[in-house]
Write a protein that binds this DNA or RNA. Structure first.
Lengths: 124, 124
DNA sequence: CTCTTAAATGCAACTTAGTCGCATTTACTT
DNA sequence: AAGTAAATGCGACTAAGTTGCATTTAAGAG
């Protein structure tokens, strides 16, 4: 199973909590916060946070904060931009590759904020 | 004084707290959070938050969350992008105008995250 | 397969940004 | 100057995330 391979490749102990957690992120098409998945999780929130933190430092996940004071995590594969809706607070992964450039800076992430397609449609 | 004019134009009561608060934002060249200015403020934090919130709904300020779980506020004038450094957590206003387009979406803000000039320089 | 040990977990207590209810004060109107 | 709705201060509260510590578990050695 690829999940176990990912964990072992980073020389992390293969615990049930880690398999469960990483499985959820691998299966998700969008960034998730603790709140989103806590009901599915068989682990303490401390374990969640310690593990996502470790996954992030091992470059398995990356994360950012949204509009709602929560940190969202997702599998670190192809770099892509995100759209955060100021109305519904939903986070979307955009297909946009991060080909933005700023002289002297390293750009790791781009977040667009505003009104998403759905909310925009509804207000017409 | 222009500060008083801004407040009165929105039909808000001209209180000392509001004058003080808006004065600080008008004078600042970058977004500020409560933490940044609390030592200068002669008001309770509840008053701070209620007022920035009201200013925001009146389009005097706008705000976003940074990397540090804090909400940053700035005067709402020319729309511009922001750069948030993942190392030093500093927020910079970029000169970039927001001429980004995404079909179906309304883009109100763009936040770049990564490593800022200074931190990038230091790591060479 | 069992023993050992360092690392991971669960739990409870804690931290901190921000919110809320309520009694008091203040800005504006007449 | 008086009345009133809105603003303020205070203290209690909420919720995300962190930390210390006792217990459990994964992985390697024998």
């Amino acid at each position: 199973m690829q999940i176990e391979k990912i964990i072992e490749e980073k020389n992390l102990k293969l615990t049930t909590a880690r398999k469960e957690l990483l499985g959820i992120f691998v299966a998700s098409s969008k960034p998730l916060c603790f709140e989103d998945i806590k009901s599915k999780l068989n682990m303490d929130k401390a374990t969640f946070y310690r593990n996502v933190s470790k996954f992030e430092s091992e470059a398995i996940l990356n994360s950012f904060e949204s509009n709602d004071k929560k940190r969202y995590y997702e599998i670190n594969e192809s770099a892509h931009a995100h759209f955060v809706c100021n109305r519904c607070n939903q986070i979307e992964c955009l297909k946009e590759k991060l080909d933005y450039k700023l002289r002297g800076y390293i750009i790791a992430d781009v977040i667009f904020k505003g009104v998403c397609k759905q909310c925009n449609q509804m207000s017409l």
